[in-house]
Write a protein that binds this DNA or RNA. Structure first.
Lengths: 166, 166
DNA sequence: AAAAACCCTATCGGCTTTATGGAGATTCAA
DNA sequence: TTGAATCTCCATAAAGCCGATAGGGTTTTT
């Protein structure tokens, strides 16, 4: 389950990705209050989240009168998977199924044969395949697409089937 | 993230799926102590989990001397997705991306346009696609396959690619 | 020096997780 | 009918996490 923190963080970065930089110039910083407003996140909580995102190098901050936060890199280069990993940790449903943060179960005699682990590894792979190729630029584009989610030809990497329940 | 409860529950049911019924007879029940041993789960904790699984109709219990727990249905008919939903709740990373338990975010003005929701919906779909077609019978088969996980031709539904980190 | 903004620490209630212990109920077998 | 094995239920509880807030400190610009 994605935490609120990660959800707000994603929304905030999506908002920042929508800021159009003047050509040749760095992006203008946006104050927390405005980010919170557009991302529909609690201001003070978002403050802590942005601090975290800054420490992880996703955003730069500027103090003082006209200060605020701005993306540290172009939105197309920031992947959703990296953001979620920074805030919530590994994508895998259980640690023993993670590649970036593998940790065997305490009392598992043989991870190589564990069927639960193998299935969760499949889930991890499927999740990573989606989030590793979705960037903030994709997010921003989707947000302003037509309601149905069926984007014309552009940003949707591979059309998702809406089938089984969850 | 899968809870410990769900993980132990899956392992316990996998253990029960490995019990071979005598032809024409119902499966013999297995006492908690033995299940705990084979599933590598804490006995008392597992007790609470099995109680839960019984209330959800996955297992039947038998009291008394030769009592214990047994699967309520053939292992091929019990899907991993159903077990996880019963114990941990929806598969979707966030409630607004769930089909079985949809709940909009408190302050989201328009879920239809939310890009975060759309991406999480893709993740949910991918996860459900895997877990909906994996049964306890598949789990039991995998557990006893060769170490690598590359099953000869049988139980593996669709070979998983082990690529990107998570 | 005042205003605007970020920076940091502390705190806090509530909830979930992960159990543990023990009393009681049920069944089978001797 | 007694006893032993087993499941059932309830109460408790420590620990950690989550979501959020408060308040004061620091930096920068005007």
């Amino acid at each position: 389950m994605l935490t609120q923190k990660a959800k707000y963080g994603l929304q905030a970065l999506r908002v920042l990705a929508e800021v159009e930089p003047a050509p040749g110039l760095p992006r203008a910083p946006m104050p927390i209050a405005e980010i919170a407003d557009r991302a529909h996140a609690p201001r003070k909580f978002l403050e802590a989240i942005l601090l975290d995102l800054r420490r992880h190098g996703f955003v730069d901050s500027l103090r003082g009168k006209a200060g605020g936060y701005a993306l540290a890199r172009p939105p197309a280069e920031i992947m959703v998977s990296a953001i979620i990993r920074a805030i919530d940790g590994p994508l895998a449903p259980i640690p023993c199924a993670s590649l970036t943060a593998y940790r065997p179960c305490a009392d598992c005699p043989d991870p190589a044969h564990c069927a639960v682990r193998q299935v969760m590894r499949q889930v991890r792979d499927a999740t990573a395949a989606i989030l590793d190729r979705t960037s903030l630029a994709d997010l921003a584009a989707r947000e302003h697409a037509v309601a149905d989610g069926a984007l014309p030809g552009a940003a949707a990497p591979v059309a998702a089937r809406d089938t089984s329940p969850a």
